[in-house]
């Protein structure tokens, strides 16, 4: 980025880093901090709420897809001649939009829970003022 040949530069660090055992990181124990103080009980309630939503999605997924391998096998005449077509359609096409829908539902629920939590937090912090 300099146009004319610039004078030479030298590399400077505070300590000349030569070979040696000096390269261990100095792990100063820093207590985790910086979080705004929240009552552990409210945090616990938030965690439980989110876990419920998460498990609902996973449970729904298991309930919808879990029995399918058994079903496809135990009912060979499922839909007569069309059996494979049904299987192809379900496993090849239908499940994918279903996943996206489940995912969107989850995100909506999880964000709602968080918004409520934040609102409760601001209400608790200042009775009437606006949040920054």
């Amino acid at each position: 980025m300099t146009e004319e040949p610039a004078p030479a530069r030298a590399v400077v660090t505070r300590r000349p880093t030569g070979p040696g055992p000096a390269a261990r990181p100095a792990r100063v124990p820093i207590p985790p901090g910086g979080e705004p103080e929240r009552d552990p009980e409210t945090v616990r309630a938030l965690v439980h709420g989110q876990l419920r939503t998460g498990l609902a999605v996973v449970g729904l997924l298991a309930a919808l897809l879990g029995p399918l391998p058994l079903a496809f096998r135990s009912v060979p005449q499922l839909g007569g001649d069309g059996r494979p077509v049904v299987v192809w359609a379900v496993l090849g096409v239908v499940v994918y939009p279903l996943f996206v829908l489940l995912g969107r539902w989850y995100v909506r629920r999880a964000e709602l829970t968080e918004r409520r939590f934040n609102d409760a937090g601001t209400r608790a912090r200042d009775g009437s003022g606006t949040a920054g």
């Binding site: 660090t13 300590r15 261990r24």
Partner: peptide
């Protein structure tokens, strides 16, 4: 740690 100081 020391290996992450400024290099100038």
């Amino acid at each position: 740690g020391d290996e992450h100081g400024l290099v100038i």
